[in-house]
Design a binder for these strands. Structure first.
Lengths: 229, 229
DNA sequence: ATTGGTATCATTGTATACAATTATACATAA
DNA sequence: TTATGTATAATTGTATACAATGATACCAAT
């Protein structure tokens, strides 16, 4: 998967990291249903590892709220509801605005170059209909902003939320119309950042999220959740 | 660090949970300094447990961003800087606003009663100078709002941030003047909620955080002239 | 003296053994 | 039949053993 923000983290190089990412992906993708019990031994056997890395992954999933642990009993899938996703979009609209504002004040030349290249490529792949690359680049745009805002806390928070709604994002972006709009909005945000107009960048990033939210409500949102169940 | 776990979670009843909370407390309280290496065996011995619960606690602390793990090498304290706290206050000012807005729309009669009683008691203890009770009640006011907003995601995000800056909060609230202001602001927020004026509640909660932030800055300024310890 | 290699130690990563806890099945008594 | 107690099994919680990795010290060669 495209876990860009974790790509350089130790998570990927240990069994625990692999188990953690695998389980998170499976939960968000609906492989494990709401309230389903996850057994350490079974998961371990399935992935060919012992219980130890599985347990450590469970602790992290619990902290992320994807599973709930009952002492001496078991781990149960919490999953993510439609309302959760909606709430996250509302929260993100505020925080992405703040992030754009701070990014305007702290972005480096290199980050700005990457952003410029990112938008150029995004446009290309969007027009060509290369959805896989488009989704990855769209993700990357947001992550560049997160990194540019110069706030470890905000970066961490937004990356978390971003990751959380990744599955829904992929589906809504597959909608051609929204893809083009999203791309244009990214460009406008970048231009505001380049002009050092923090207020404008904030407003645009804010609106960008609201638009994504409304598109999500309007379009294939229900589909995204009905399909797997 | 978006751990959506409940504060009443099983965390507290297992060795892992105890280790996790102990280490978090110690890191936030500055017992372990920036970049200090935490060794599993040493921590385990100190707390009288084996490495296993310590390791699991490490995984959670890493996810919370309090320590950074280097594979096959060790765990290093990330800690929390003044800037982190400032950033959190800025983030919270937005999110507490959203929370107040949603709380206005979803608060129950019981929650409103508790809030009313809370403010009454807060005022009492504030005037009497009972700082311990005052701090606890002040905390509780915010938690009631978090619970009333009817968003699991926002509730847990805010509780998390709230916990994160708890230590700083205790210090700034000890400032008598700010205590009285804070108390009055709580009352105004509640009245807006009672009047079902969501926009006003949002604005007031927003301002409440900004005020706390500015008061904190002032405190830091004063501390700048004191000896480090 | 400096470089390079090697042995040794310290520490983390993983697997497994054992203890504690909870769920389940079944027998027994009212 | 229903309720209750008990034995058994399944599962998690914790400790420990062993493997893999990285750090350190020391020696030898130049």
């Amino acid at each position: 998967m495209n876990d860009y923000h974790l790509s350089s983290s130790p998570e990927n190089y240990s069994l625990r990291g692999k188990v953690f990412h695998k389980l998170r992906e499976d939960i968000l993708n609906g492989k494990y249903k709401q309230n389903e019990e996850l057994k350490e031994a079974a998961i371990g056997e399935e992935l060919g590892v012992s219980r130890t890395p599985v347990r450590e992954a469970f602790r992290q999933l619990e902290l992320e709220g994807l599973i709930q642990m009952v002492p001496n009993k078991g781990a149960y899938v919490t999953g993510i509801t439609i309302k959760d996703v909606q709430d996250i979009y509302m929260i993100r609209s505020l925080l992405e605005g703040l992030c754009a504002k701070w990014a305007t004040e702290h972005i480096t030349e290199e980050q700005l170059s990457e952003m410029e290249e990112n938008i150029y490529l995004t446009q290309f792949h969007q027009e060509k209909g290369h959805m896989e690359q488009f989704a990855a680049l769209d993700n990357r745009f947001h992550e560049i902003m997160y990194e540019a805002c110069n706030s470890k806390i905000l970066e961490h928070t937004l990356k978390d939320f971003h990751q959380y709604v990744y599955r829904v994002r992929k589906k809504t972006l597959a909608n051609g119309k929204r893809g083009a709009d999203s791309c244009r909005e990214h460009k406008e945000i970048m231009e505001a950042i380049k002009e050092k107009d923090a207020k404008k960048a904030q407003m645009l990033a804010n609106k960008h999220m609201i638009n994504a939210y409304e598109n999500m409500l309007k379009k294939d949102f229900e589909h995204a959740f009905e399909k797997e169940d």
